[in-house]
């Protein structure tokens, strides 16, 4: 089984990963094989089974509403590939 190349195109676009024409060929069979293998899950009867997204059993702990962080502009910007003054910089975005 292979995944439709248009699907590869769609998901690589969603994931913002450029995929060349030739890699797309390879990926469609790669992903197809993996998904095919994964589809054995269909054998499992999951009727009425509540999905499990995490194993924690304690309740979510809440933080106090105090300002304990921020004011570290230098640390925030330190690793940026491009910055101007106190801003991050990206290629112009047109809405």
């Amino acid at each position: 089984m292979s995944v439709d190349k248009n699907v590869v195109k769609k998901i690589s676009r969603l994931a913002r990963i450029h995929v060349s024409e030739e890699r797309s060929e390879m990926l469609s069979s790669d992903l197809g094989n993996i998904l095919n293998w994964i589809e054995q899950l269909e054998e499992v009867n999951t009727d009425g089974v509540e999905p499990l997204s995490g194993v924690n059993e304690h309740p979510l702990a809440w933080r106090d509403d105090t300002v304990t962080d921020g004011d570290i502009t230098d640390k925030v910007l330190k690793n940026a590939p491009e910055k101007a003054g106190e801003f991050f910089v990206v290629p112009k975005v047109i809405e």
């Binding site: 962080d69 921020g70 004011d71 502009t73 106190e86 801003f87």
Partner: peptide, 16 residues
């Protein structure tokens, strides 16, 4: 824990 107040200098009310 960074401040939610409006109007700070750029990237100042920002935590990691």
């Amino acid at each position: 824990g960074s401040s939610a107040v409006f109007g700070a200098s750029p990237n100042n009310h920002v935590s990691l």
